[in-house]
């Protein structure tokens, strides 16, 4: 006796009216959920420019460029070599300077295209004696805040705090810095040299 294939017919009817399982992705955007580890992104107000992310990055996707003449530090993040491991976010000293976003889509034909790079620029504090890099100004202020009242023991923090309220001009460079020059923005090496070598 011929039996109608009820199970197959109901399945066919059901699949006729249910929407397709396949995504309509390139036509409709897909937004990854918040926990997805996408490409990292700098937050310029929170970043202090310490360069921890550069040291920690396993693929060396972040490059640090110091311009001592202009007093500008650049952190250049290359998305193409980033492996989205999240070390930069984890080790960031402010915990907010760099964060992994949920963005994941990038397709380029040229590796030097501008959308591949993200850059943060920070002002540098430069040694008045030798012209070497001390740290970023935001970094010094961040450390000052962490130290609290103890920070006023160190001239660099003091000068950096002054600079917030009034313009502090760099002093004229001498051949040799003396003990009286210690209340100036001086790098640790020069400070040590002065303390050890300078005679009264």
């Amino acid at each position: 006796m011929f039996l109608p294939k009820i199970r197959e017919i109901t399945e066919a009817l059901r699949s006729l009216f249910t929407p397709a399982f396949t995504t309509k992705y390139p036509l409709k955007p897909y937004i990854a959920h918040d926990e997805y580890r996408g490409f990292p992104k700098y937050y310029e107000e929170e970043c202090v420019g310490c360069g921890t992310c550069v040291q920690v990055c396993p693929t060396s996707a972040i490059e640090i460029i110091d311009d001592k003449q202009k007093g500008v530090r650049k952190l250049v993040l290359d998305y193409t070599s980033c492996s989205q491991c999240g070390q930069c976010e984890e080790k960031c000293i402010t915990d907010k300077g760099i964060k992994l976003s949920s963005e994941y889509v990038l397709s380029v034909t040229d590796l030097k295209a501008p959308e591949v790079y993200e850059t943060v620029e920070k002002d540098l504090a430069v040694c008045e004696a030798c012209g070497d890099v001390i740290a970023c100004r935001d970094h010094l202020l961040f450390v000052k805040e962490r130290l609290g009242a103890k920070a006023y023991a160190h001239p660099n923090f003091l000068i950096e705090t002054q600079r917030q309220f009034a313009e502090v001009k760099p002093s004229s460079i001498k051949d040799k810095i003396r003990r009286e020059d210690l209340i100036k923005e001086v790098c640790p090496v020069c400070r040590h040299k002065t303390v050890v070598n300078d005679e009264f």
């Binding site: 992705y25 390139p26 036509l27 990854a32 193409t80 492996s83 990038l106 380029v108 034909t109």
Partner: peptide
């Protein structure tokens, strides 16, 4: 010709890269 970054790239990112290569989506 085309670079699709990511570690690993999501399937959507791969589809997007190929769709750009085919001219389906504007870049």
């Amino acid at each position: 010709d085309y670079f699709i970054p990511g570690c690993p790239p999501r399937p959507e990112a791969i589809l997007y890269g190929i769709a750009v290569a085919l001219g389906l989506v504007k870049k």
